[in-house]
Design a protein around this nucleic acid. Structure first.
Lengths: 181, 181
DNA sequence: GTAAACATGTAACAGGTTACATGATTGT
DNA sequence: ACAATCATGTAACCTGTTACATGTTTAC
């Protein structure tokens, strides 16, 4: 039920419309949690039915403004303080690495090189976001800075690992080319 | 459709029954891709219908032995060499960090400390698996060693980041306690 | 004999994805 | 007038989760 808490948390922090939320999911949260428009609008209606958020009367373009209720904020704090995430690992890139033995070595290397390049680029991109955030000192931006820093470290670690993995393949390759040496 | 390729890949590498596959998902792949028993049995039947794997006649306890067909191995290579994963980030732990501002600072710190501890323990656990794997030199174990090494680096990086994040909170805390100094 | 492990399957439900459908307002 | 952006919603489909249902073989 994490999508529910993602939506609830955003309303508690920023208040706004479903449209506003979709912009946050598309930018700030895009490397943390993905959500589709259909999901967000459906969840907002469910949260309102359950009394965790309150809806304003529809404004100009049918726009609805949502705000967190006391019950909503309590539920958010309960989720954060009294529950712990259970891991659901689902890493397509590691799954592919696991099966890379089905490919000729040079194609396996291509995949690892591609992984390294995309993550190097991602680290660079996140460093720019981090620099932009560094200027602000709001309460909200404090924790989002931690999240961005995690992204940078994760991307850098993945790129380094990919480079190391390629050297490992090279070494075992040589053993095969010169067996018994 | 990654579950499909996970199942296909395992059959291509090890051949065996649905029951055998569930053991691999429960151990080796447990930190890479999670799957339930229902999913695996359903997918095996679909893969067999599509001609990507072949089924033996049911043996002793209704056991079915699966093997990859040429079409199956071709599909696996196609997936690995000619497609690239699209990212679907869904990190509950980062989502929680993003909303940690809703909690009093000491409870936010508790969460980060817990994250650090669990990842330190995980790194240790994976190092043991890595040591066990180090003895083997099979073709299959080569790539699984890369996967385990990724897990170690990821866990270590996360634990270091959590420790750093706690120091960051401490610093901004002091600014609040002594404003204007 | 009985518990553990082997072995397969399905049904109900929850969650996620894609695509469609509709209309208002703003800027050029 | 027209395009872009704002704004909400639903339906069909696919994937994933939980729980149930059933029977066999091995080891003690």
């Amino acid at each position: 039920m994490s999508l529910r808490h993602a939506v609830l948390g955003l309303i508690a922090e920023f208040r706004g419309s479903g449209y506003d939320l979709m912009k946050v999911f598309g930018k700030t949260l895009s490397h943390v949690w993905v959500a589709t428009q259909g999901q967000v609008y459906t969840e907002l209606n469910k949260l309102a039915d359950d009394g965790l958020i309150a809806v304003s009367e529809p404004g100009p373009r049918g726009r609805k403004q949502y705000t967190a209720t006391d019950a909503g904020r309590a539920e958010l704090r309960h989720w954060l303080a009294e529950t712990r995430p259970v891991p659901h690992p689902r890493s397509e890139h590691l799954l592919r690495v696991y099966f890379l033995g089905s490919l000729p070595p040079d194609q396996a290397r291509d995949y690892l090189a591609w992984l390294g390049e995309t993550h190097t680029a991602q680290a660079e991109q996140l460093r720019q976001i981090s620099d932009e955030l560094a200027g602000l000192t709001s309460d909200t931006s404090r924790y989002s800075r931690l999240v961005v820093e995690y992204g940078i470290r994760n991307a850098a670690m993945t790129a380094e690992w990919a480079a190391w993995a390629i050297t490992q393949l090279g070494e075992t390759e040589q053993h095969r080319e010169n067996p018994g040496r």
